[in-house]
Computed example of a mutant assay.
Amino acid sequence: MDAMTPTPLKEHQWLQRMVGAWEIETECVMAPGEPPVTTKSIEQVKPIGDLWVLGEGEGETPCNAHAVSRITLGFDPQKNRFVGTFIASLMPNLWLYDGTLDANGRVLTLDSEGPSFAGDGTLAKYQDIVEWVSDDHRIMKSQVLGADGTWNHFMTANYRRKK
């Protein structure tokens, strides 16, 4: 790959599947033992050339606040890893993504680090796991690594392509 005229790799082409308009239904577990809270939002994913995608999201949060978000995703051939960022209007931190695609090309696991749910100023490890069900349906599950070393699921978002 020439640095001045890069050729898109299969990983870049994989990301282009996300391009389009999406309706999202999200279930969040706000506290252990409580029923999940369901919210609805939308996302418009645009290509940035052939190498990157930009997702622009907007909708309600489980706390009944309106939020706007942006996600960038690409593939870094030198690292052989998916990379990206996430920001949201209600969060003061920038989330940096570093991820891998499974051997079947269906599941992208994005690792990140951010403020712990404990609210004590410590950082925690997080994962956003994107799984393609079909070309018009993807699921993202979010989990946080607990102090005991186990992953704790707290959110599932179903993305369905707008017709």
Score class of each variant (00 low, 15 high):
R161V: 11
A103T: 11
Q127H: 09
M1I: 12
I129T: 08
S112A: 15
W151L: 03
T5D: 08
V68D: 13
D111V: 00
P36A: 04
P47M: 00
E56V: 02
S69H: 06
Q13T: 09
R161H: 04
A124E: 11
V144Y: 08
L9Y: 07
V83W: 04
L9P: 01
P32G: 06
W14V: 03
G149R: 02
L9T: 14
L90T: 15
R70A: 05
D128K: 08
Q78P: 00
P8L: 02
M4E: 15
R70Q: 12
P47H: 01
N152K: 13
W151I: 01
V19T: 07
M18D: 10
G74I: 06
S89Y: 03
P47C: 01
D2K: 10
M140L: 14
T122W: 06
K163G: 12
V53A: 04
M1Q: 13
L123R: 11
A65N: 14
A157I: 03
A3V: 14
T26Y: 00
G149H: 01
T109H: 06
P32Y: 01
F75L: 06
R17G: 02
W52V: 14
R81F: 00
K46W: 06
K79R: 14
P35K: 03
D148A: 00
M4N: 15
L90V: 14
D136S: 15
V53P: 01
L90Y: 14
T109P: 08
E34N: 05
L145P: 04
W22M: 06
E58S: 10
S134D: 11
S112F: 09
R70N: 11
I129C: 04
Q44D: 13
V133Y: 02
K40S: 10
D128L: 13
D50W: 06
L108F: 01
N152T: 12
D98T: 07
G57C: 01
H12V: 05
D2R: 08
W14G: 02
K40N: 08
V107D: 00
R138Q: 13
L96K: 13
K141C: 02
V29T: 13
A21E: 15
C63I: 12
E27D: 10
G84H: 05
Q16F: 02
W22Q: 07
R138K: 13
E60G: 01
Q78A: 11
Q13Y: 04
A103H: 02
V130D: 08
M30F: 06
I24Q: 01
L90S: 13
S116A: 10
Q127M: 07
D102I: 10
F82I: 08
G74T: 14
L145Y: 09
G121Y: 10
L90I: 15
D2I: 05
Q13K: 14
K125G: 04
A65H: 08
K162I: 11
R106W: 05
H66I: 05
E43V: 07
I139Y: 00
K79D: 05
P115E: 15
R81V: 00
V53W: 08
S116K: 05
I48N: 12
M91I: 10
P47D: 00
T38L: 04
D120R: 02
V107E: 02
S41E: 10
T61M: 01
A147P: 12
G74Q: 05
H137L: 15
A21M: 12
C63P: 00
S89Q: 09
H153I: 03
W52K: 09
